[in-house]
Design a protein around this nucleic acid. Structure first.
Lengths: 185, 185
DNA sequence: ACCTGAACACCGTTCAAGT
DNA sequence: ACCTGAACACCGTTCAAGT
């Protein structure tokens, strides 16, 4: 019962709850998020939660907001890639998707998105940003606007599908990614 | 098609519960499946459920089994497409994916798959079957084995992603599907 | 300002008892 | 064989009361 949580003896800030929720999301998925579990993790009782949040929905909102900020930074990092040649840029984005161990958070959020309009809009926004980046790169490579749109669509949808489907399909190897990009660009 | 739905005054069979669960899955998603809701829907009390099933997990299993049977029939129908030229075959599968209103059941099942090993294996099996069909068609079109594998991968992953992402990304038009297939085949 | 602890409603589950 | 209805444990939520 070693509750290795944030500072013991000190009172909690809203961020401590958000941190705990994100960690649980990552390790146990959506189902792991229960108020009792978070309370155990933080060493407080349930009433404490309700001082910081109106209800579980408010927690979701806070977690989502945090995720958006983080994702925004990742996307900014991608913007730096603008200096790279377009093909390398697409490859970098693809690779980022593949080795992202933290995609379990993304899956959990898309899960939430299905029953929560606010989460849905946040996820949609992120999707659109990625789509635009891929589309732009393909145009710069020299594809027609129509081709770029269609190809960016498959790529981004495939990315979403990949995040959801480590079930039965083989995980693409770096070599296969290269081959795909050669075929598509 | 021997599904007699909720006849009042008569006692229930296990299939009545599975039917009800599938309908709720389709209309309300995973969250809608509660024993109380199903009982209301069928006009019985909770104890009745536990005569037919050991617990909610057993219901899941029954629903999954049913879904596998149905999906199996769809795949058999696809096998009939073997007579079509390969390109048309891939187009037919893609179109099937796009206008499938009942993909909400698939999403709900992939949802379950994340916390239930049995559901996961069923979904994985279906994924592999579709993947093999697409790969084979691409080989028959004349692509190399390696190319076919990679392209089938993106297509199937994109299909999975599409089922999950009617959020923010534009829905592909039939014209765009044609364009994609021209680019890829 | 931040938290406790009792209380309540809801849901999954069990079970003795009814037909 | 199939179902009722009471009971219990668990979880989200509220709130008066404590520091």
């Amino acid at each position: 019962m070693s509750s290795t949580s944030a500072r013991r003896g000190t009172r909690l800030a809203t961020d401590d709850w958000t941190d705990a929720a994100l960690e649980v999301l990552r390790t146990q998925g959506r189902a792991g998020i229960t108020i009792n579990a978070l309370c155990d993790h933080l060493g407080v009782t349930r009433g404490s939660f309700y001082w910081h949040f109106a209800d579980l929905d408010a927690l979701k909102e806070a977690v989502t907001e945090r995720w958006c900020k983080d994702t925004g930074q990742v996307l900014e990092a991608l913007a730096v890639l603008q200096q790279l040649p377009p093909v390398d840029r697409v490859r970098a984005m693809t690779m980022h998707l593949l080795d992202e161990g933290s995609s379990s958070i993304e899956v959990a959020l898309r899960d939430w998105a299905r029953t929560d309009a606010k989460v849905a809009e946040a996820v949609a926004e992120a999707d659109r940003t990625v789509f635009a980046a891929v589309e732009q790169a393909l145009v710069q490579i020299g594809r027609s606007a129509a081709d770029a749109r269609v190809l960016a669509g498959v790529l981004v949808y495939a990315g979403i599908g990949f995040a959801h489907g480590d079930h039965g399909l083989p995980r693409p190897t770096p070599d296969e990614v290269d081959r795909l990009l050669t075929l598509i660009t």
